[in-house]
Structure formats: structure tokens, C-alpha cells
Design a protein around this nucleic acid. Structure first.
Length: 283
DNA sequence: AGGGGTACCTGCGGGC
DNA sequence: TGCCCGCAGGTACCCC
């Protein structure tokens, strides 16, 4: 679920709420989803929170906590001021129901606030690592699409020379980090490129359109707090949904009219994953 | 190198 | 009602 915009939204909201606090207690409810010794995080101050690709990188003063939400992971923050806040402002239902049956991890902070890691499908993970181990773990990712290293020259030289189908290439985290199944379809639609094209058949102009679409769409999706699909597997740390689902051009719009040409949006399978696109617009 | 398949998990919705 | 199937935002691993 969470792709770059969703993970970045989580990062920003956690940064505001938990940096500077100390970890008072950690309860691991699903052992296989926490790699390392949970006792080692207790007492440590949360120094900073970064993001690399779809991974949260939490500096806990000497050690690094890497977090991957995979398909259904969520991190919910519950402040110690729950009662005060809820007077006249009912909390989202989920906040009154924590922990719930999908809660895999609970972290108590030293101001009595708590973090809940919920993950229905149990694919997500926390890894407690040294700085060096974390660097190794993150070493294979390609450039951040919103960072300086992601240049048009790089994209022409990498995407333009791979012989793969362009949709699959966009999902390759070594080529460019952070794009997932939703935004791959959205980027291709915005750039008017067919998801079936071989990447090395794309003109420089088409790669340039993809390049701009990646930057624009990911940036806008972050501004909108990410995409919460129908099942709301993704929610922000305050349990509210993102708003980018209202801006989607083709994803989950199979059979509906294209906003651009009025033609019908199609759904196809590529390597066993759904791709949504408009054959009228995308060539 | 890259494609295809499977695996990891749980739950939901559709068809019969 | 109930069963079976396909499907879901990700990625690792296997074989070819």
C-alpha cells in the first residue's frame, strides 16, 4: 500500500510528534515482524526520522530502526491527551479501539503517548540495526525521485536503456526508489505512455514526460497526504485518510470514462499485478 | 538480464 | 447460507 507519498506523509507527521521523546516501553505482539532485540530500544531518545524509498529510517541515538509497512502496515500515534482532545471532537473510531486484532507492536514514549503498528497481512517489519547495517540494508535503492540525484540525464540513461516493459521498470526500486503499483499507473497516464511499451523503445521526449510526471504526481500526492484506497489500509498517523484518492486519473477506475479523452479506462495484468490505463491517451 | 511463478498473510466481495 | 476463487498499496526467492 504505502508507496513513497504515503510513507513520506507518515514520516512528516511522526517527526512533528515523536522526535525528542524517549522510548519507555515496547511490546512486540508478533515476533517475526521485529528483527533484533526489542529490549535494546528502551531508554533511547528518538533523534530523527528519515525516509529512503518506502522505508522509514528512525535514528534512536546510536541505533537505527528501519520500518517497512509493505501492503497493509499502518503507524498510529495516540497522544496522552486523548481525553482532552476528544471533548466535543470525537476521535476517529480506530483510535478508541487500540490495540486491535491487527496490532503487531506498541511503543510507549516517555510522555505517555503511544505508537501502534498495525498490519493485517503481517508482511511489514521493524529491523533494529547498527548504523552500518542500516546503510548496507539501504544501499541498493536507486535515486530518490524528488531528490537531486534523480536527473533527466540519469533517467534517459537508465530507463531508456533497459529492455523491460516500462511499467515493470517503474516499479524497480533500484532504478528509481519509491514508486509502487498505484503511482506507476498514474505516472504512465499523466505522461501519455502505454504501460506495455518496452522501456528502450521510448523517445527522449517520452522519458522526459515520464520524468516530469513522476516528480509532479509524487509531490502532489504528498501534498494531499497520500492515497487511501477503499479499504483504508493506509491512514495517516492520526488515523485520518489521505486525500489523493480523489485525484487519481486511472487507478481503480476500470470501465469509467477517461477524464482526458472520454474513452474507457482499462485494467490489464502485468506480471500478475493490475495496471490501469487509457488506451485512447496512452501510446 | 529479466520473465514468470510462488510465497509470505488476512479478509473481503462476487459468483454459483 | 456456504464454498471457492480472485483480489489487495510489496518484495524476496526460485527456476528458466
Amino acid at each position: 500500500m504505502p508507496e513513497l507519498p504515503e510513507v513520506e506523509t507518515v514520516r512528516r507527521e511522526l517527526e512533528k510528534r515523536i522526535v525528542g521523546k524517549k522510548i519507555a516501553k515496547i511490546e512486540v505482539l508478533e515476533k517475526k515482524q521485529f528483527l533484533g532485540d526489542p529490549k535494546k530500544v528502551v531508554g533511547r531518545e528518538i533523534k530523527s526520522i528519515w525516509r529512503r524509498a518506502k522505508v522509514l529510517v528512525i535514528d534512536i541515538n546510536g541505533l537505527i530502526l528501519l520500518v517497512h509497512l509493505k501492503m497493509t502496515g499502518q503507524i498510529i500515534y495516540l497522544s496522552n491527551k486523548k481525553r482532552l482532545v476528544s471533548v466535543g471532537h470525537p476521535l476517529p473510531f480506530i483510535l478508541n479501539q487500540l490495540p486491535n486484532k491487527t496490532t503487531r507492536l506498541v511503543i510507549n514514549l516517555d510522555d505517555s503517548s503511544r505508537l501502534f503498528f498495525n498490519d493485517l497481512r503481517k508482511f511489514g517489519w521493524f529491523k533494529l540495526l547498527t548504523k552500518k547495517q542500516a546503510e548496507v540494508e539501504l544501499a541498493d535503492f536507486g535515486p530518490e525521485p524528488l531528490g537531486k540525484d534523480f536527473t533527466l540525464r540519469y533517467f534517459i540513461n537508465s530507463l531508456g536503456r533497459t529492455r523491460r516493459v516500462v511499467k515493470m521498470a517503474l516499479l524497480d526500486q533500484r532504478l528509481v526508489a519509491g514508486i509502487g503499483n498505484i503511482y506507476a499507473s498514474e505516472v504512465l497516464f499523466a505522461a501519455r505512455v502505454s504501460p506495455r511499451r518496452q522501456a528502450n523503445s521510448l523517445s527522449d521526449q517520452e522519458i522526459s514526460r515520464l520524468y516530469r510526471a513522476i516528480k509532479e504526481i509524487l509531490s502532489e500526492a504528498i501534498d494531499y497526504g497520500g492515497t487511501s484506497a477503499a479499504d483504508q489500509a493506509y491512514v495517516r498517523p492520526d488515523a485520518s485518510p489521505g486525500r489523493y484518492q480523489n485525484k487519481l486519473g486511472v487507478y481503480q477506475r476500470e470501465g469509467k470514462p477517461c477524464y482526458s479523452c472520454g474513452g474507457i479506462v482499462k485494467k490489464i495484468k502485468q506480471n500478475n499485478r493490475s495496471t490501469f490505463w487509457c488506451p485512447g491517451c496512452q501510446k
